[in-house]
Design a protein around this nucleic acid. Sequence first.
DNA 1: GGACCTCTACTCGGATAGGAGATGTCCGAGTCTGACTGG
DNA 2: CCAGTCAGACTCGGACATCTCCTATCCGAGTAGAGGTCC
Lengths: 178, 178
Amino acid sequence: MHETGTTIIGIMRISEGVEWAAHCCLLLDWMGRGDPETAEPVSTARLAAGYGLPPAYLNKQLQPLVKAGILTSTAGKKGGFRLAKRLADITLMDVLTAIEGPDEAFQCAEIRQHGVWADEPASVFRAPCAIDTAMRTAELEWRRALAAQTLAAIQANAELQAPGLRTQVLDWYAHPRT
Amino acid sequence: MHETGTTIIGIMRISEGVEWAAHCCLLLDWMGRGDPETAEPVSTARLAAGYGLPPAYLNKQLQPLVKAGILTSTAGKKGGFRLAKRLADITLMDVLTAIEGPDEAFQCAEIRQHGVWADEPASVFRAPCAIDTAMRTAELEWRRALAAQTLAAIQANAELQAPGLRTQVLDWYAHPRT
DNA sequence: GGACCTCTACTCGGATAGGAGATGTCCGAGTCTGACTGG
DNA sequence: CCAGTCAGACTCGGACATCTCCTATCCGAGTAGAGGTCC
């Protein structure tokens, strides 16, 4: 019995920046009392402190959200990030697309066009690769489900499961720091 | 107008090995005439030649499929890979799980437990993170759609779109090589 | 002629390099605040 | 007292390292078959 020392295989992973971004949006909404218009900017330092994250890297992760129109950034002494929309108008799909990019996870390399099939007439390849089609279909379901989840709904669930949390967090931020 | 030279953001990508594996399964079924029992092994060299892929790397990519029970490998002079099941019993989900691993794409790091919420009672975290829940829901839809697609169905679609292809490919493999 | 043995050619399997992308850090451009100065 | 000016400190934004993981290659263990040899 020779236990094979096979290394575990790598997994495709979503960047942790997605999780950070989503949490920050929820926190920004709390700190802005639900109204992006009257909300004051929150600096990366304060956001990062709230989750124990490296401030500079969090700043880097939030930048794509600004470009995507989810957040608004303000420079200067009292600058920081604000929500650009209401939570009800932001979906998980928006956040993921902003950070991971618009491309699909499965990229068909059209390997069928090399090797054996290289001599086939071009008309054969007008129809899309059947594997690619199936993958796209599944991925479309995934994106549809992501687009159906707004951050507002997620926040509602969170507050439902931990009712007093919002107030406590705001208190923590209000008091300078122990 | 100072065109910002921002680098494009990275995208989460599914390993190309998934595409290779799926194509090889379809090809193996063709070469085995649809019956895994009577099928003769096909070496990586022949499979790789069919798609213009690096043989050694393709071999490495197919190994997880053997461990997952999708393929069977035979060593020796007339060795190679055979299908371990019928295409109707293999789903895209099986292939993807075999290569990418069983873990989910979104890994919740529970960042809510650091920073502000560190002092919260542990009972608060019994309920799963709302963001994680939403992500899991969406990913479940994706996996469900993948599991609904059998390789047999995909092969049927491919043959429907290019009726004569199967015979031509088998001919290409039958004749030594020009 | 037939059975056995050896030898070779060929296979997969895993260990080993190389490269791209994600992770993490740092410094500069810009700007808002606040105090200072002059009227 | 008030408006204008200026210095300062703090912000984001992007350029610069580090590190993990995917990509790619190579060599060894093992096997099936062919051929030779002996009975």
